[in-house]
């Protein structure tokens, strides 16, 4: 069997808006990994209190992982990590729930 190709260890600095301030996390990654991969790594390895919203992880089907990355609205699950700093913020036009999570459910599907 062949050996897995060597993946250089890369590192991204995710600067995440948490309420009024930003908190930065150094995230190691392999070429091709996504912002969502990085956020899940932070929750398992650094800080499980970080709030993010996602469901399908790979299929880009649920559309729940929308956020702002470097000022642009994107899906965290299809945006690749890049070496260096990336600024992550919640959607600006929705009510903030916590950290990167906003109220995105249609109004008639919320608890009344």
């Amino acid at each position: 069997m062949g050996t897995p190709p060597d993946h250089p260890r890369l590192s991204a600095r995710l600067k995440i808006r948490r309420g009024g301030s930003f908190e930065s996390f150094e995230v190691p990654f392999e070429q091709g990994q996504t912002v969502l991969d990085g956020l899940r790594w932070i929750r398992a390895q650094r800080d499980p209190s970080l709030a993010i919203r996602f469901s399908c992880i790979n299929a880009n089907a649920c559309k729940e992982c929308m956020m702002r990355v470097d000022g642009k609205t994107v899906y965290a699950c299809t945006t690749r990590l890049v070496p260096g700093e990336m600024r992550l913020e919640p959607l600006p036009n929705k009510k903030l729930i916590k950290d990167l999570v906003t109220e995105i459910a249609p109004p008639d599907e919320r608890l009344r």
Partner: peptide, 8 residues
């Protein structure tokens, strides 16, 4: 290789 945005 790593695929993003597609069901595995």
């Amino acid at each position: 290789p790593r695929l993003v945005g597609m069901d595995p």
